[in-house]
Every structure is written in C-alpha cells, then in structure tokens.
C-alpha cells in the first residue's frame, strides 16, 4: 500500500482541484471574518463588544467550526467525487490497476491521500482563521490570547472528520457512477437538500415517533459535533440532542461504511 500512497500523493499533490479547494477555503474564512468584522463595527442593535469578542484569537476555533458544515463538507464531496470519478473519465483506472498493486491497495492509497488532503484543507481553515483573528485583535488593540492547544487539536480533529465523511461519500459515489459529474451532483443534493427533507419528514411523521432515526444521519451528527464547540460567549441555544462523543462515533462509522462500499464496488466490478 506504500507504493499506492506514494503514487496517489505524487499525482494529487499539485492537482488543480485540490489547490482551488484550498484557496476557496482560505477565501471563505477571509470573507466570513471580513463580513463579521464589518458588522461588528457597524452594529444594528447588537452589542458591539460581544460581536467583536467573537472575532478575537481565543474564539477562532469556534468560528472556524461554522465553515465545516455544510460548506466544507460540500467541497469535500466534490473532491472525493473527482478523485474517484475522473479515474474512469480519463481511463486512468485501468492504467493503475494493471500495475503491481491490487485493487484494494490502490483504493487504500487513494483514500489515505484524500484523507491527507482533507487534513490540509482543515489546516488551511485553521491557519486562515488564526491569522485573520490575530489581524482583528491587532487592529482593535486587543491582546492576542490563543485557545488551549488541546482545544485547537479537538477542533482540527472535528473538522477533519466531517470533511473525511463527505470526501469518502464523494469517493464512493464516484466509483458507483463511474464518473464524477453524477457523483458530485448526487453527493451535493444528498448533503444540502435530500438529508434536510428526510430529517424534516421523519421529525414530523407520526407525531415525531421516529425522530430518533434522524440522530443517525451524518449531517445531523456533523452539525452536532461542530456546534459542540460553540463558545459560552455566544451562549448555547438549546441542549444538544446528539452528544459530541456519539457524533464522533457515528461519523467514524460513516467513513468506514463509505470506504467498505467503495472497496466492494471496485473489487467486484469489471473495468471496461
């Protein structure tokens, strides 16, 4: 599998889609911070001090969480779909499979590198957030106090996990449809529309008897995990129905499920 990882990294390290995604992530962080900063400086009935407090370095981990789902997840679905689907469009799947590694080893290398890129995108989010929050603090004359290293690590882990779930979903869809266009279309619709409709329907169906099912949707768990970082500065809206620990377990299970589905499809099907 080392050979597959080396090959996958060599071909994906400068892949335009990943570089554009990294730039997009950095751009989104800058945009969110810029808009929030502008609103903080031009408050409309809001408490300026509290709003600005949200933008200082000690709160940057909480702010970054907002970029994880659904925006970060959507980017991850697209990348996962491209990584798997374009191998069919370019006929490169057959080229790779007739080299030495077996099918599962090839897929393993592909997933490891996709997961590594999800880590890079997470790092870009955090670096962008940290940098922008430091700029805000310097401009506002506020002292720079960073969150505890453990909190930063937890935040990075949470975002990475959310991106990994969506990335592996995109990869599974890319292999299922043997192309990227359908895969990213279906993936994005599932992520942003289908899941919301399903959750709303199940929540109201039969007086909410089956509402517990919604606690197993990946989107619900991703949202729950990311919102578990919400700072007391902003206040908790309501007691969470899904705990962070359960969310982590469910999301890890989703990653494993999508990888197993990808492996089964790739192993069983002919490459025509």
């Amino acid at each position: 599998m080392i050979a597959s990882i080396k090959a996958e990294w060599r071909k994906n390290r400068m892949r335009p889609a990943f570089l554009v995604a990294a730039g997009l992530m950095a751009g989104v962080v800058a945009l969110i911070y810029s808009l929030d900063w502008y609103q903080a400086l031009h408050p409309v009935g809001a408490d300026r001090a509290v709003t600005l407090a949200m933008l200082y370095p000690d709160q940057f981990v909480n702010n970054i969480m907002a970029a994880g789902f659904p925006l970060g997840a959507a980017v991850a679905v697209v990348l996962g779909a491209l990584v798997a689907g374009s191998e069919y469009a370019w006929s490169t799947l057959k080229t790779t499979l007739i080299q030495r590694p077996g099918r599962l080893s090839t897929l393993g290398g592909r997933f490891v590198v996709l997961a590594a890129w999800m880590g890079i995108l997470t790092a870009v989010l955090f670096a962008g957030g940290a940098a922008y929050s430091a700029v805000v603090a310097l401009f506002e004359g506020h002292s720079i106090v960073w969150p505890a290293v453990f909190d930063i690590a937890k935040g990075i882990g949470a975002i990475w996990l959310v991106l990994a779930v969506s990335g592996s979903l995109g990869m599974a869809l890319g292999i299922l449809f043997r192309q990227s266009a359908a895969a990213l279309g279906v993936g994005l619709i599932y992520l942003t529309v289908l899941q919301l409709i399903a959750v709303r329907f199940i929540t109201t169906f039969n007086g909410g008897t089956y509402k517990w099912i919604t606690n197993w949707f990946d989107g619900q768990n991703a949202s729950a995990l990311l919102s578990s970082f919400t700072s007391p500065v902003f206040g908790h809206a309501a007691a969470p129905t899904i705990g962070a620990q359960q969310a982590v377990l469910v999301l890890v299970a989703y990653v494993a499920f999508f990888v197993v589905v990808s492996a089964s499809l790739l192993r069983q099907r002919d490459v025509t």
Partner: peptide, 10 residues
C-alpha cells in the same frame, strides 16, 4: 490496453 489513459494535468 486501448487508448492510453493518463492524467491530463500532469
């Protein structure tokens, strides 16, 4: 096998 398949951006 058939047309050569390579990565166009490399």
């Amino acid at each position: 096998v058939e047309a050569p398949g390579f990565y166009p951006y490399l």
